[in-house]
Every structure is written in C-alpha cells, then in structure tokens.
C-alpha cells in the first residue's frame, strides 16, 4: 500500500469517528462539544479532499466551514447559553423506527455503490487536479450564470439575516 492509502484510512477513520461523536457522544450532551467535533470532522474531511487532489476545495472547506460557519455556530450556542440536552427516557418506538430508517437509507446507498458494476469497472488512473486556476476557468466559463445567481443568493441571505436579527420582529 502506498503512503496515500494509509493517509486515506487515517483521515476516513477520523472523519467517521468525529462525525459519530457529533451525533451520539456518550460523554457529553453539550452542544459545544458537538460543534467542536464537527470542526474536527470538517478538518479531516479537508484532508480527504487533499488526497483527492481537490486543493482549492480543501482550503475553502477549512476557510468557510471551519473558519466561518462553525464559529458562527459556537457564537450562537454561547450567546443563547444553551443548557446540556437532558438525557431522556429512550422511547423504544422512536429509536427503532429511526435506526431502521437510517439502516434502510444506508443499505440502499451502499448497495448502489458496491453492486453497481459500472463503478467498480476499471477506471483510468485519475490525473485531474482541482487547483485554483483550473476550477476558476471552468467556473467562469461553463458556470457563469449559476455563479451570478449564487452571489444574488448570498445578498438575499445577508438582507434576510439582518432583518431577522433586528430587535423587534414584526
């Protein structure tokens, strides 16, 4: 196995472990803990992006998700002064239906991925590199309209947030 394969297993394990601790942390129900583990998930996922040669996206993932979005989350948690989630009595019905639905989704997805022969067909050894220049070119050549719409979306979101966070919501 090449060094990159080891790195894949390390990052994948980290991603899944931290993701698990976001959702079902046996030690703490504190939302801050969840948020911090989500940050770790995102950072290790950026590692996976680097292994997939998506360098620009790895940087953006850390810059936007870990640097801005998650800080916003922490900010809100701290401002709202949320108490720890109480441990409830486990309602068997809810739990079983929940787990069943998750397992069903997982099963369907995995079956599609693993059984579909087209995927495991011999692909060419990948050569593509997600550098800034390559991504920028394709973004501004093929996807200019969606890009502009996206900027409009951001503007709308900004206006919406400012309106929502005014003191008296009418």
């Amino acid at each position: 196995m090449a060094a990159q394969d080891y790195l894949f297993y390390i990052f994948a394990a980290l991603t899944l472990l931290c993701g698990l601790l976001v959702v079902v942390n046996p030690f703490s129900r504190n939302p801050v803990t969840s948020a911090m583990f989500l940050v770790l998930t995102i950072v290790s996922m950026a590692g996976l992006f680097v292994l997939l040669h998506a360098f620009f996206l790895a940087a953006v993932q850390i810059l936007v998700y870990a640097g801005a979005v998650m800080v916003l989350f922490l900010f809100v948690i701290m401002l709202l002064d949320l108490k720890e989630e109480e441990r409830r009595k486990i309602r068997l019905f809810g739990l079983i239906t929940g787990l069943l639905s998750v397992l069903a989704v997982l099963g369907v997805v995995l079956k599609t991925y693993l059984v579909d022969s087209r995927l495991s067909a011999n692909l060419q050894p990948p050569t593509i590199e997600g550098g800034t220049a390559a991504l920028g070119t394709i973004l501004f050549k093929n996807y200019l309209l969606p890009f502009e719409i996206l900027s409009l979306l951001l503007l709308v979101a900004m206006v919406g947030v400012i309106l929502l966070s005014k003191k008296d919501l009418k």
Binding site: V43, A58, A59, I62, L63, A66, G67, M78, G131
Partner: peptide, 25 residues
C-alpha cells in the same frame, strides 16, 4: 510549497479564533 499557499494561510488563521472562543467560553 503549496499551490494554494495564501488560501492555506487564511484557512489556518481562521482556525486561530477557536482558541480564543474556547478560552472565553
């Protein structure tokens, strides 16, 4: 010698906020 050098820097710098947020919290 990264191709995305400056983006890396800004990403890491933005992670520096966590220490301070967590210290405050």
């Amino acid at each position: 010698d990264l191709n995305v050098g400056i983006l890396y820097t800004f990403g890491i710098v933005s992670l520096g906020v966590y220490g301070i947020v967590l210290a405050g919290y």
